[in-house]
């Protein structure tokens, strides 16, 4: 025979999954949320998302090419995911140079400084978002009103997010039930018709994306379910104990970044635990910290910090919560 045979260890066939396939699957699941955010916030939503994605991809390419001197791997889609997620937690009217700066921090500091895909301990999009949030608090908390394509790109009419309204009210010794009158109904919140960041507002669209990813087996549903469950139960207990100074649990689930964080940020493969048991611990931790910050901290929203804090515990969780081995418990019989 003239052609040489290939030799390698088994298995000799490989499943269809690949990193790009998974990443593009995540991106596909984000489409409904993107469509809704364009409907609510108009051109700004498109511009911010495009800027964020392009700068993330560009920075990853440049850093890999010229600083790390490795073949660029931007087509695996992970930089695109980071870009979209970063954009989704920003207000639609934010200056675009801030978006690019956030992308640089997300990719450069959050991902590449640790060695690139697979090595970063913290979710890159969240690193970028928290950097912007702390460095430019004014721009980052000017939430435009959802006015569709009528939303002005500059000097748009802004208002506080529902969570912000509650927090502000509580600080001024007001009670929750009257404050709720200023806030859209739960149904409106579910559709996302409120002030807030682009991707966070529409719980409905995010849940659609979640269902898509679970059906396509892109992510296991454990982490989002435990986070949302914990938030629901914890805020529910607080609400039952004292409805005067606590919002109801459904309100907590539908507002702020909990949905986006639970479904997309906390489930980032690289920065979440690897066993089912560990995932539950991780999810409960995020839920508890989120509620603690929302209720007792000075920020109205705490899910980003909660995820970053729990990211730091992932290596520990991984070494403490091992999968149950086959034949681990000796059976007699």
């Amino acid at each position: 025979m003239d052609k040489l045979l290939r030799v390698s260890y088994s298995p000799h066939i490989h499943g269809e999954n690949s990193v790009p396939r998974l990443m593009w699957g995540v991106i596909a699941s984000l489409v409904p949320a993107f469509v809704l955010s364009v409907l609510y916030f108009g051109l700004g939503a498109i511009l911010v998302t495009a800027t964020s994605v392009l700068s993330c991809v560009l920075f990853e390419y440049l850093i890999q090419r010229f600083i790390m001197k490795v073949p660029p791997t931007v087509n695996d889609g992970s930089a695109v995911v980071t870009g979209v997620l970063l954009a989704f937690c920003l207000p639609a009217t934010i200056p675009l140079w801030l978006v690019a700066l956030g992308a640089l921090v997300a990719i450069g500091v959050g991902k590449m400084s640790f060695g690139g895909l697979g090595s970063n301990p913290f979710n890159p999009a969240l690193v970028g978002r928290v950097f912007l949030f702390i460095s430019f608090p004014v721009q980052l908390t000017s939430w435009p009103l959802p006015m569709g394509f009528k939303t002005k790109l500059v000097d748009a009419a802004t208002g506080a997010t529902p969570l912000g309204v509650i927090k502000e009210g509580l600080l001024n010794n007001q009670q929750v039930p009257p404050l709720m009158d200023d806030i859209p109904s739960h149904m409106q919140l579910f559709y996302g018709n409120m002030n807030g960041s682009m991707g966070e507002v529409a719980a409905m669209a995010l849940l659609l994306g979640f269902i898509y990813m679970v059906v396509k087996k892109i992510i296991p549903p454990v982490i989002p379910l435990t986070i949302l469950g914990t938030v629901f139960v914890f805020t529910g207990i607080l609400w039952l104990a004292n409805p005067e100074s606590n919002a109801d649990p459904l309100f907590h689930l539908l507002t702020g970044g909990v949905m986006l964080g639970a479904i997309y940020m906390a489930t980032d493969y690289v920065t979440s635990p690897m066993t089912k048991k560990g995932m539950v611990v991780f999810g409960v931790g995020i839920g508890v910290i989120t509620v603690l910050i929302r209720r007792f901290g000075s920020y109205p929203e705490g899910v980003q910090f909660a995820i970053l804090i729990m990211n730091a515990f992932v290596p520990l969780i991984n070494s403490w919560f091992k999968p149950k081995r086959f034949g681990e418990e000796v059976q007699h019989g």
């Binding site: 040489l4 045979l5 290939r6 030799v7 390698s8 260890y9």
Partner: peptide, 19 residues
Amino acid sequence: PKTSVYDGPVTCAIAHALY
């Protein structure tokens, strides 16, 4: 003469154990 193509991880330890 080369008689086959090895397609595994580039380390002698694994190639030796294989064939």
